[in-house]
Amino acid sequence: MIFVAKNLKANSVNLLMNDYAAGLPSPLSFIGLADVLARELGLKPWSARIIPILHAVHVSKGRKKPEMLPKSGKFSPIEIVEGITGSAEVSLIIDLPGFDDETQLAEALIGKRIAGGLIATTNITVRQVTADGSAFSGLRRGYAMVRPDDHRRQGASRGDLESLQQIASTLYPAEKGEGFGWIVPASVGYRLIEDPDTVPARQGTRSETIPHVFAEPLVGIAELLSVRNTRLRNASTEYLNDLFWGWVPNDDLITGHSAYFIL
């Protein structure tokens, strides 16, 4: 069994995924939300998985005000604001192994954040559903953000020109097969540039037990599939299970899905 949380609205959502992709909330941010829920509910950290369904995303106009400090008798900005924020309406399919309380999950979602944006919905509806394509029944129109089926679109780049060009060349294919969705660049993980076992201790980190490690972002491709697409509505338990985003460590890589590989 899995859970569906329907029609959540969040404001001031960060739509800047990483250095290479922007315009939608990052799929990795939804994994972060799932992990926060798992920890609050007393479940195993890093075990939660999630499929975000985007109903609407609106980009905010204008820029945020930079922080100011007095300097030479006048106030001057001390930072350059580079960001894209907006509002988002989403539903979530959540896998929380070992958990089965709809009411408790609904309560835990109140006041949480999606990509930094506070969930404004207070009357949250959560229901348990069967882990197959029927999970998408009853959802309003929207697009599930998932990893692409096509192996050629599962490559990820850490920023070198050649691999970025390979990804860009797959965004607009000459032919679209049956059940094809919208493909978009997306943040799909990180490559560690330090060894967690030998990295020096740093002050001001968020955790006393988890080391602070510098990493570089990975960009890949995500696919937006309509909740009415037959690939989703007719999904078997096995197929749906493979669509969930969740942290996958692999040597110096941490990706949001096991399908992604470095070009």
Rank of each mutant, 00 (worst) to 15 (best):
residue 56 A to S: 15
residue 89 E to A: 01
residue 77 P to A: 07
residue 71 K to F: 08
residue 50 I to L: 12
residue 56 A to M: 14
residue 80 I to T: 06
residue 80 I to C: 08
residue 64 K to N: 15
residue 58 H to R: 03
residue 90 V to M: 13
residue 86 G to E: 04
residue 70 P to Y: 00
residue 76 S to L: 07
residue 84 I to G: 07
residue 84 I to Y: 11
residue 60 S to G: 08
residue 62 G to Y: 01
residue 62 G to W: 08
residue 76 S to W: 05
residue 90 V to Y: 05
residue 70 P to S: 00
residue 65 K to A: 04
residue 91 S to N: 10
residue 88 A to Q: 05
residue 53 I to T: 01
residue 83 G to Y: 12
residue 62 G to K: 01
residue 74 K to S: 10
residue 59 V to Y: 07
residue 62 G to D: 03
residue 60 S to I: 00
residue 69 L to N: 09
residue 50 I to P: 02
residue 88 A to Y: 09
residue 78 I to G: 00
residue 62 G to P: 01
residue 61 K to D: 15
residue 56 A to H: 11
residue 54 L to N: 01
residue 74 K to L: 01
residue 50 I to T: 00
residue 76 S to Q: 15
residue 52 P to S: 02
residue 80 I to K: 06
residue 59 V to N: 03
residue 50 I to C: 10
residue 74 K to Y: 06
residue 72 S to N: 15
residue 71 K to Y: 14
residue 65 K to T: 03
residue 78 I to F: 04
residue 63 R to E: 09
residue 52 P to C: 04
residue 81 V to F: 15
residue 89 E to R: 03
residue 51 I to W: 06
residue 60 S to E: 12
residue 62 G to M: 04
residue 81 V to H: 12
residue 90 V to S: 00
residue 83 G to H: 13
residue 83 G to C: 11
residue 64 K to P: 09
residue 78 I to E: 01
residue 67 E to A: 12
residue 87 S to A: 12
residue 80 I to E: 14
residue 60 S to R: 05
residue 81 V to E: 09
residue 91 S to Q: 05
residue 56 A to P: 09
residue 80 I to Q: 14
residue 87 S to K: 06
residue 79 E to K: 15
residue 60 S to V: 03
residue 84 I to K: 10
residue 50 I to M: 07
residue 87 S to E: 14
residue 50 I to D: 02
residue 72 S to D: 15
residue 79 E to C: 13
residue 59 V to M: 06
residue 83 G to W: 12
residue 63 R to L: 14
residue 83 G to N: 08
residue 88 A to N: 13
residue 77 P to L: 14
residue 84 I to N: 10
residue 69 L to R: 11
residue 89 E to P: 02
residue 77 P to H: 12
residue 71 K to I: 01
residue 85 T to V: 10
residue 85 T to W: 14
residue 85 T to A: 11
residue 77 P to Y: 09
residue 65 K to L: 02
residue 51 I to D: 00
residue 61 K to M: 12
residue 75 F to Y: 14
residue 52 P to Y: 00
residue 90 V to D: 08
residue 77 P to W: 10
residue 67 E to P: 03
residue 67 E to Q: 15
residue 73 G to C: 11
residue 76 S to A: 12
residue 67 E to N: 06
residue 58 H to W: 06
residue 58 H to Y: 13
residue 64 K to R: 14
residue 59 V to S: 04
residue 66 P to E: 11
residue 63 R to Q: 11
residue 88 A to S: 13
residue 71 K to C: 02
residue 64 K to I: 07
residue 56 A to R: 15
residue 88 A to L: 12
residue 85 T to S: 11
residue 88 A to R: 00
residue 53 I to V: 15
residue 57 V to D: 06
residue 70 P to Q: 00
residue 89 E to S: 04
residue 87 S to P: 02
residue 69 L to F: 13
residue 70 P to C: 00
residue 60 S to Y: 09
residue 79 E to Y: 14
residue 67 E to G: 01
residue 73 G to W: 03
residue 54 L to C: 07
residue 59 V to Q: 09
residue 72 S to A: 14
residue 89 E to K: 05
residue 90 V to W: 05
